[in-house]
């Protein structure tokens, strides 16, 4: 059944899963629509098949703008985009794409079961298959007990889960998720992470946007960093958002041994405990010293750049504050 659907759709089996070329979006604003705002500027990138790609950028960077262009919800001012080798204007291809909108909202007069069943109809499944899929998806996103509740009674996190369920309901080749972790509690985030990894294991392509570095690092084969509507770099998370360590941080409780005074001088006191930051190369030396001083080491962690630091460094404080570029006004 699935195979037949794939063939019928005629999508080429090679080439990147998603590719954009010079993709640009200007929004007109103001009363007379005379002001132009460039939300996305000349985006050229590729997402390979089977890859988990993180679209990383601060708020207002142009992530949602890009994703809406990919889904054909808006139309580019310039440039082209293709998914599985076919132009994004080709709606028939949506059989192969799953999409989670940012802060999703659904028909609130339906229950989760009804909503998923409704969406499943567009993929041409029969009643038995719809029932089976709906049940499986609800279970997957942890809503099996809430399936019969109207969506108007759902919390934001529950809606987000329904959103994930409808995005993968039809087992699509390419899954595009706009801020999939937002609005979720830690358990929910973890479940979404597991779903993304599961999709990856099944050979699916996943593109998701996030402004949270940790999520991107944990899941992505590659990330694309976007800010101010421009792509600033693409690569493995490690290369891009340098896990450039700023050193190591040691947390300890001081002892009374020899040389304790020396190390305490450099440390910062936090109640009973002390915190000290050392360069990566000096880590073992510092640990030795602490041991000699009879200190009790509580934790050793890498001091990392925050995403905000990174963006500031990358595009300069000036541009980080203005989220999109103004391109002339009349």
């Amino acid at each position: 059944m699935t195979a037949a659907r794939r063939n019928a759709n005629n999508t080429p089996m090679t080439g990147p899963a998603i590719e954009t070329e010079g993709l640009t979006k200007d929004y007109t604003t103001g009363f007379w629509l005379a002001k132009k705002k460039r939300s996305l500027d000349n985006l050229t990138m590729q997402v390979e098949r089977g890859e988990v790609f993180g679209f990383l950028g601060p708020n207002g960077a142009g992530k949602t703008t890009t994703i809406k262009l990919l889904m054909g919800l808006t139309f580019p001012s310039a440039g082209t985009a293709r998914i599985l080798g076919r132009p994004v204007s080709d709606v028939g291809m949506h059989n192969e794409i799953g999409y989670l909108p940012e802060q999703p909202y659904f028909y609130d007069y339906l229950t989760a079961c009804e909503l998923l069943d409704y969406f499943a109809r567009f993929h041409g499944y029969g009643a038995a298959e719809r029932r089976e899929r709906v049940e499986r998806m609800l279970k997957k996103v942890g809503l099996e007990t809430a399936g019969k509740i109207q969506l108007r009674k759902y919390s934001k996190g529950m809606l987000q889960r329904v959103g994930v369920a409808q995005a993968i309901l039809h087992d699509p080749q390419v899954v595009i998720l706009d801020e999939p972790m937002s609005g979720l509690d830690p358990l929910g985030r973890r479940e979404v992470r597991d779903i993304i990894l599961e999709l990856k294991r099944a050979g699916r392509t996943v593109l998701f946007s996030t402004h949270i570095l940790g999520d991107a690092e944990m899941l992505c084969d590659r990330v694309g960093v976007i800010a101010g509507g421009k792509l600033r770099g693409v690569g493995a998370p490690k290369e891009i958002v340098g896990v450039q360590s700023h050193g190591m941080e040691i947390l300890f409780e001081p002892g009374s041994g020899a040389g304790a005074a020396g190390i305490l001088e450099k440390a910062v006191r936090m109640g009973e405990r002390y915190r000290i930051e050392v360069a990566e190369g000096e880590l073992y030396g510092a640990i030795e010293q602490l041991r000699a001083a009879g200190a009790k080491i509580l934790s050793v962690v890498q001091v990392r750049q925050t995403l905000e630091d990174y963006f500031l460094e990358l595009i300069g404080a000036e541009q980080a504050r203005t989220s999109a570029v103004e391109v002339g006004e009349k």
């Binding site: 889904m71 054909g72 919800l73 709606v91 028939g92 291809m93 949506h94 059989n95 794409i97 799953g98 999409y99 989670l100 909108p101 802060q103 999703p104 909202y105 659904f106 028909y107 969406f119 567009f122 993929h123 959103g163 409808q166």
Partner: peptide, 10 residues
Amino acid sequence: RTLYALLAKP
């Protein structure tokens, strides 16, 4: 914005 998810279907 209920239309977003719907138009993502075929």
